[in-house]
Amino acid sequence: MKHPWYIRLAIHAALVALALPFCMPLVWMVGTSLKEDAQIFPKEVVTTVPEFLSQWWPNPFRWANYPEALRYVPFPIYLRNTLMLCAVNVAAAVASSALAAYAFAKLEWRGRSILFAVVIATIILPGEVRMIPTFALYRWLGWYGTYLPLIVPAFFGNAFFIFLLRQFFRTIPDDLCDAARIDGCSEWGILWRVVLPLSKPALATCGLFQLLGTWNDFNGPLLYLNDQTKYTLAYGLQQFLGAYGGEWSKLMAAATVFTVPIIVLFFLAQKTFIQGISTTGMKG
């Protein structure tokens, strides 16, 4: 069904009107990151339209905000830490969840449905319930102040990913697996050579979710890290906010630097990501 032109125009108009508040703040963020303090803190408040419009454009451009902001915080160290955490977490969470999802989707074994229900039920457990004993456990293990609390859990599967991947694996015909079995393939071989290659969009989606989660993780570093050389970007940015609360240009520069990589990544992965979600389906 193709809509008549006036309907399409109306939809475009609605979308543009709605999109403005969604992207304007980000434009403002980048603009502010290039302004001088004098432009950010005008002596008198802005009350006219021309003044307002001229506010959007940095005048003059102050590129120095970027190096200055990055000098306040050891950005390369934070970036390195964040990237390493992301790499380990993505690999570990996707791998362990895929194994479990395969067992739930393609194998029949005693206790399967009960265990699956338990795994799904853990999604509704508020993290707060676990927080304090987990904290005490890590402290007892001597893991406080190390990365271990931020990476080890990923090796034990993620309930949401298990659900997502199981749904996806179930769409792969059983005949395919059975044929491989008859050819003498082990379960491991079926997973590795049949199921996983067919599930790349779903795996990529889980990977991206985990990447976003780790990149944005604030509570983990807040609770467990105490050494500035171990901080991640998300936590480092908050430290920055605390220490330089009113230096908006530098804050915005730091926020821009923090945001751009993830936007670029989204652009690159967008198609796979949406495909992964759509084909998975959310229906039980």
Binding site: D37, G245, G246, E247, W248
Partner: peptide, 10 residues
């Protein structure tokens, strides 16, 4: 709220 930070130089 419209003033800069209270840190040192500013």
């Amino acid at each position: 709220s419209g003033l800069s930070t209270t840190m040192a130089a500013s």
